[in-house]
Amino acid sequence: MRTPVAYFLLLSAILFSLGTASVLLRRNALRIFMGVELQLNAVNLTLVAFSRMHMELDGQILAFFSMVVAAAEVVVGLAIIVAVFRRTSTTDVDRASVLRG
């Protein structure tokens, strides 16, 4: 494999910062959530890259667990978004600035 490991890490860093930017810039809760998913994927990429570099499978296992947890998180997160939308008829997080339902 000729591509330096650092390139993957750099790509991961860029994707992570783009995911973060999405979280910070978008107001739609669903878009924010997509940003979070992108961040998670970027970190997974790092894990797999290091797994390859250190010749160990544990990094891949960790990425695998991360995907499982992300799946669970998506399910609950989307359900919360749906529940909030039912109540307030909006997915704009700036509007949801009080804890009172």
Partner: peptide, 29 residues
């Protein structure tokens, strides 16, 4: 602020990668 922070974090991580493993390290076969 968000854009500045996003660029900053990429720069910082790049620095960290360079300090840590360098840009030319290849994974062993």
């Amino acid at each position: 602020t968000a854009v500045i922070l996003a660029v900053a974090i990429v720069a910082e991580l790049a620095t960290a990668i360079r300090a840590g493993i360098g840009f030319t390290t290849r994974a062993p076969g």
